[in-house]
Design a protein around this nucleic acid. Structure first.
Lengths: 193, 193, 193, 193
DNA sequence: CATGAATGAGAGTTCATTCAT
DNA sequence: CATGAATGAACTCTCATTCAT
């Protein structure tokens, strides 16, 4: 796979978009600034993307894909519910902590009306293998028989809350937090006897 | 008497700001649109607020104050840790579900760089009575001995996640969810023997 | 002559106008600022003046009248040309140095297109007694037989140049300058044998 | 070649600025009007200048430089004091009469608080060769031993007064005036035996 | 007479987008 | 493919003026 000049430029644009929207918000991330950070002309953006909306949409879709691939990369359907959940949970946390620029960008888009409604309406369907695992857990009496959205809100999203607070400079996540966070996530959704 | 008119106009501006920033984001909520929704001239905004930044800052501070007052209104320090926590938790949920415009606006501001850093840096200090309660819970061996930020992320914030998803039209919270959510919150932070 | 409340307010407005236009220029001297400095409501200005243009025009005319009255107050037509000129010259200088706010304001208006053309077209006709004196001086062979405008430019206006430079903070007029200035003025216009 | 177009547009903007500020004053010379007179979009101004203040500052500095270069272009330090002074004086007059738009603009800026203080504080230092000449004249007992600012006010600035009056339509400079003006200037500053 | 509140019109400025090269 | 120059539209904000009281 040859990395032509074009691909490099496109990548630079995607990275610049992520960085600037994270730092300054969608407003205050003008095309000219994005272009400058990517070291291209503003006009060049329009060779790769239709317009600003399309740029943000495409970046969102691509990053989300990378995220989804990453978190399920090591997951096997044969795993037990608890093992599978922990694995996925730790992959998600790993991604959010190590690729936090990308993770922050996804959260921005989830929350702000900056990407097209249609794209955002997919909701949590990209987590399908996790949803399937939870279903299995419910069937086996291991996971609470509650809505997937509740499970998501209590088991998956809190780590994002921590990340946001860290990004805002009001909290610093330290290594032991991760284990404690996992414990809390599991306690929140597991069915106690 | 003379103040009445002013107060009405100011209130209309605050409401318009909340609604438009919720719907369209800070960008795409131009002063002219805010003015029109509040049925005043754009110039009138500047009689009540110094500029757009000041408008958003002030709305944030005022709504946050209303929120904080509301959630602790019925709380008494004599309550047991578990009773106190449940009470506060339910007041928070009640506010977020019934005054969801205001709640959404607060979340917008917590996440986006649209209000001044100094104001946002207060973090979760406005929840002081809850933090004190948690401290008591930790001392009594009832609450997990983990960071308040972790407790917040797992016990308080998930309800916001649900609200956002509902606002986005991808989920509808139903009455039984609230009880299940409370159970999950408590399971996540309580110290099991 | 009773100083009613009205007259006091009008005077305050005139003074405020002079001060603000001197300090900040016509632009940057908004009606609201003028009103505030005069301690009245913006609306009150319109009880005394038709609009901003009218305000500036009237202030100009009134100050110019005060100036003209002052500089000829002690002049007698029986004086010799040289005595009469020196007397008027020194009265002009005295006014410009001691009532320099008012003097600066007149200069502003002479130079800027801020007062109505018709009013400014009067030119130097308000100096009629001086022009008459110069005519006498020309007839008597004491003053150079050149245009009154030239005489004005060389004998009267330079003191304004000094005042402006002082106001700008690039020069400080000291007492001996006045005598030297008078000497230069006289040398410039007197007819040498 | 590529720069040509830019230089043309920039020049048009500078000219438009001079003309409009002369005619209407700093106030009443809105960017939109300047743009229209220069036949460009308002936004284009901001490609060449940071803002309105910067535009006026830069125009002032550039015109002043042209003026200074012009008036000393034919001057030689070997000249006698009287010859040198007459030469410079006549170059100054020539510039003010023939490039009167530019000359008027410089006067506007000298008088009004429309350019930055720092730039205006240079005062008459741009006339250094003339100031040196005057010093020589004082040493040789040819020029009155008085402040350079007095010399400036009486020998150099009066021609501006005439120009202003002409611009205002209340006087018309005729050719013989120039010689008479020079005579008056010299009489005002030369030391009589 | 006097006012504080209100505003329409227009100021300076920015920005997503286009186009000649 | 890539660009710098250019722009119309829209933004935030100001101000001379008015009006209900």
């Amino acid at each position: 796979m040859k990395l032509t000049k074009s691909i490099i430029k496109r990548k630079a644009l995607v990275d610049a978009t992520i960085q600037l929207i994270n730092e300054d918000g969608f407003h205050n991330a003008p095309m000219s600034k994005i272009a400058k950070l990517a070291s291209v002309s503003p006009a060049t953006i329009y060779l790769y993307f239709e317009n600003k909306q399309d740029l943000v949409n495409k970046v969102f879709i691509e990053i989300k894909e990378i995220f989804t691939t990453f978190i399920f990369e090591t997951y096997l359907e044969e795993m037990t519910v608890e093992d599978g959940f922990e694995l996925i949970w730790r992959r998600i946390s790993l991604f959010k902590l190590e690729q936090c620029k990308e993770a922050m960008f996804l959260m921005h888009c989830d929350f702000n009306p900056i990407i097209d409604k249609k794209i955002r309406e997919e909701g949590i369907t990209h987590l399908q293998p996790l949803l399937d695992l939870w279903q299995r857990g419910k069937n086996e009496g291991i996971i609470k028989p509650i809505s997937n959205y509740l499970l998501f809100a209590y088991a998956i999203n809190p780590i994002s809350t921590l990340l946001i607070m860290q990004q805002q400079g009001i909290y610093t996540i330290n290594p032991s937090d991760i284990n404690e966070a996992y414990k809390a996530a599991w306690d929140a959704i597991k069915l106690s006897k």
